[in-house]
Design a protein around this nucleic acid. Structure first.
Lengths: 333, 333
DNA sequence: TGTTAGCACTCGGCCATGCTGAGTGCTAAT
DNA sequence: ATTAGCACTCAGCATGGCCGAGTGCTAACA
């Protein structure tokens, strides 16, 4: 078993098929290449390693990698080299934190990274305000739990008096505060409308705009370091690179992968090669992790790299980042 | 001269060096390949075309392209196939308009595109508002000319009364409305501070946050279709592709290119190969255009593709988009 | 029974070689 | 001024031979 480990580790470093002689010299256990060959033969039969062609060294199969990362995962402790997010402490704009996180991870690992913003739908409205900007436009600001700010300009036909505005604001807040977007259903709307009297249609407009602005963009996601994939010859084939980069640009598929069933847990998920349901990442490994902003509100971060990824480092980095992020968001509350 | 045109046009289509026989058959003017050869020889001497190696066809040199696009540009009229931005008319968030514009252009031309948001520094403040969100945080909303909304959470130690808030808001608006970020100098600050009395330090904080939030991110930029470059074999070399994509990801350099001296005009700028000061685009052509939001406030959009770009189409598309954008922003006023 | 040495075998990668076809330049004829 | 013809060049491709890394197997050994 230590031989499998040795093979994998060597392959991770070099990226080239590893032969029996290399192992026999490289490791401490004094075994001749012939012995190694026998062992390798066994390992191949068990499906942990593969020969790209007769008379080349062996490379780990997906199954081999899987065994390896499983072993890694239950290792007592990973060294965590600290990484500090360099953020201007004062302003806490969610998107810049996320962008920075993606950037740091990509720079640290030399792989591509992608981070998704938490879903909005589950967040309750904390505060809501309309302001008259000029004759034709209202500004609607919505603050969600977690201090996420969304804003929108709404065009109106008539100028509202300060008094009306005050009344509308009060009403909107009374009715909507504490609700999340899914809870604003027909009955709430109905109440609001009857309550608002003459301004019913305006209210409808407003709710509409708010709803689309919250719901609209699906999950936002940021990528970084996507050009890192050129550093790995096995992905440097233009066909593969193109597919991968397209996936990273589109983001949609990857987002879906991350929000797969059953992993809303804190756990770190590893998809090796074909284990991923995504066509584009068949030649890659994807490692995803979850960060939490509060109960039920979480986002994902993923690292995409070659199969022969430095899993140890990646998992370490992610764990690290998770605690870093959790801390930031804790403070923000 | 019509021969040069023929050569270039053929090369634009095929991407392969074009030989004398091809031209002789392809065009209407009935000339044998030998004649073409003589002409080509002349053209080469004049520096408009180049042989990649002895006994291959000719390809246009940068100088040749330059001549070609110059001819194009003074052509009476380009056919503009209309392209409609699909935008939800109600919400007019600048960034989604820009993203959509980049997307449409990339999809229409099959090249990579990048669009920059207009610079903020020149925009004057239209409206400004502080709101208490919870015990520890204030929300600062700034609306700039052109209905660009920026917001920031500011942490405070004490809870402000509604009255104080009202006073602060009034004061901030009186002093800052109509100014752009560069006009908020020491003397204005000084006045504000003395005026505000006990809240001087809070005011400083607020101005600080506003300033950094406006100034902070430099110029925002969005890219789209960067993976289109894989469609052109001459850029499909991993070295070049990597450089280009990195440039597109970083955006910074490209932004600088776009904001080069002397082209704040409406004009469309074309950089062919080495004409560009950017190392990364030495193998490409870059076409940039300017859109206007109002006097002195403008952004740029650029298309990056291979030297053998369909200049006609690109320029047409850009012109089209420009008028489209101008219209949208006109309406928004 | 596990380990080792030795040997024949396999096969990708590399290099030299040769061929082909597209394309040129030049010259002589129209 | 245009054209036909011809010799020449050269990238691209296929072929074939060689090398070396690596394997599998067998026989010897502890």
């Amino acid at each position: 078993m230590t031989i499998l480990r040795a093979i994998i580790q060597n392959y991770l470093e070099t990226g080239e098929p590893v032969g029996s002689r290399t192992i026999s010299k490289y490791t401490d256990l004094n075994l001749s290449s012939a012995t190694i060959r026998n062992e390798m033969s066994d390992l191949e039969e068990m499906g942990y390693i593969v020969q790209p062609h007769t008379s080349a060294g062996r490379i780990p199969s997906d199954k081999g990698y899987r065994l390896y990362v499983d072993m890694l995962m239950q290792d007592k402790q990973m060294e965590m080299d600290s990484l500090k997010l360099e953020l201007n402490a004062k302003s806490e704009k969610l998107d810049s934190i996320l962008k920075e996180a993606a950037r740091v991870v990509a720079a640290n690992t030399n792989y591509a990274s992608m981070i998704t913003a938490p879903r909005y739908r589950k967040r309750s409205i904390k505060f809501l305000q309309l302001t008259q900007v000029d004759d034709a436009s209202l500004l609607a600001v919505v603050i969600l739990e977690g201090n996420i700010v969304k804003n929108n300009i709404i065009h109106v036909d008539e100028v509202l008096t300060a008094e009306t505005l005050l009344k509308l604001n009060l009403m909107l807040n009374t009715f909507l505060q504490g609700l999340d977007i899914e809870e604003i259903n027909a009955s709430v709307m109905q109440k609001l409308r009857t309550e608002s009297g003459a301004y019913a249609s305006l209210i409808s407009d407003i709710i509409d705009v708010i709803a689309t602005s919250l719901e609209g963009e699906e999950v936002e996601a940021y990528t970084s370091g996507s050009t890192n994939i050129f550093k790995y010859p096995e992905l440097n084939d233009s066909q593969k690179a193109s597919n991968l980069l397209t996936a990273l640009e589109e983001k949609k598929q990857l987002t879906e992968l991350m929000y797969q069933e059953g992993d809303s847990e804190r756990g770190i998920q590893v998809y090796i090669g074909d284990e991923s349901p995504l066509e584009a990442t068949k030649d890659c490994s994807v490692v995803t992790a979850t960060y939490h902003i509060e109960e039920g509100v979480y986002g994902k971060i993923g690292i995409i790299g070659p199969r022969r990824m430095d899993y140890q480092k990646v998992v370490g980095t992610l764990k690290n980042l998770m605690s870093e992020l959790d801390q930031i968001f804790q403070k923000g509350k």
